[in-house]
Computed example of a mutant assay.
Amino acid sequence: MAAWLRACLQSTLKIVNSVIGLVGMAMILYSLWMIRAWFRQWSGLSPDGVSASSPPWFIYSFLGLGIFLCVITCSGHIAAETVNGHCLSCYTAVISLLLILEAAITADIFVNRNWEEDFPRDPTGRFEEFKDFVQSNSEMCKWIGILVVVAQALSIFLAMVLRALGPDHGEYYDSDDDSVPARLPLLRNQAQNNPCMPDPAILLKNDSWNVRIHDKVGR
């Protein structure tokens, strides 16, 4: 029963963790598209446009976050497969810190009306385009955000349950040395209960009797 429950939890954690990986891959693809568009725009700009001295922080931040989510997904799959306590603890801690960061950014956006001033100026204009896209598709973006948060919360919960269950030692540590002592009492009982087997004491008496007879004959 415990092995079946552990296998179900491992599969569920991998599925939930894959949602985070899909989001990270989508962010990487979108970042690569933004970098390509920015380089095209920068190559034909006038001196009043984007300069090489102003880095596109939003694009690189988006790309870094996508790579970070993919790395978390890989570590989560490894932790779910091995059921290692240290891997599961690190995975839970990283996902928890990510949730806290997301909650802080969301609270700042809803509470602070001038939240845009907290971020540096984006010379590429992609930040404004992304903000307009989120505002025009607020319902879809809201459900995507809820899905990501629920996936992260479930990942934390499943990782904690798996860590509490621990790995299945029965399949890996069942050796011949452990099974032989369990068979020895059974063999001894069979030897004692078998009527065809002679008694060692009788054999010793017969051997000593034969030795005495041979001594007398020799004399």
Rank of each mutant, 00 (worst) to 15 (best):
A2V: 03
A2N: 08
A3M: 04
W4Q: 15
C8A: 10
Q10N: 01
Q10R: 13
T12C: 07
K14Y: 06
K14F: 09
V16A: 06
S18E: 10
L22Q: 09
G24P: 03
G24F: 00
M25T: 15
A26K: 05
M27D: 11
L29I: 15
Y30F: 14
L32H: 06
L32R: 03
L32I: 11
M34D: 01
M34K: 01
R36C: 15
R40L: 15
W42E: 12
W42Y: 12
G44Q: 08
L45G: 10
S46F: 11
A52K: 06
W57Y: 15
S61A: 15
L63H: 06
F68C: 04
L69K: 02
V71C: 07
C74E: 04
G76L: 01
H77I: 06
T82A: 12
N84C: 08
G85C: 03
L88R: 00
T92K: 03
A93R: 03
V94W: 02
S96N: 05
L99N: 11
A103S: 12
A107H: 01
D108K: 14
I109H: 09
N112F: 00
F119L: 15
T124C: 05
E128L: 10
E128F: 05
D132I: 08
F133N: 00
S138M: 09
M140V: 13
M140D: 08
W143L: 14
I144W: 03
L147H: 08
V150Q: 13
A151E: 04
A151V: 05
Q152G: 15
S155V: 09
I156C: 07
F157M: 09
F157Q: 07
L158V: 05
L158E: 06
L158C: 09
A159S: 13
L162H: 07
L162G: 07
L162I: 05
R163Q: 10
P167Y: 10
D168C: 08
E171M: 11
Y173A: 02
Y173D: 00
D174I: 14
D177C: 11
D178V: 14
R183S: 13
Q190W: 14
P195G: 05
C196F: 07
M197K: 11
D199M: 08
D199G: 01
A201G: 02
L204I: 04
K205P: 01
S208D: 11
R212E: 04
I213E: 05
D215Q: 13
D215M: 11
V217T: 11
G218R: 14
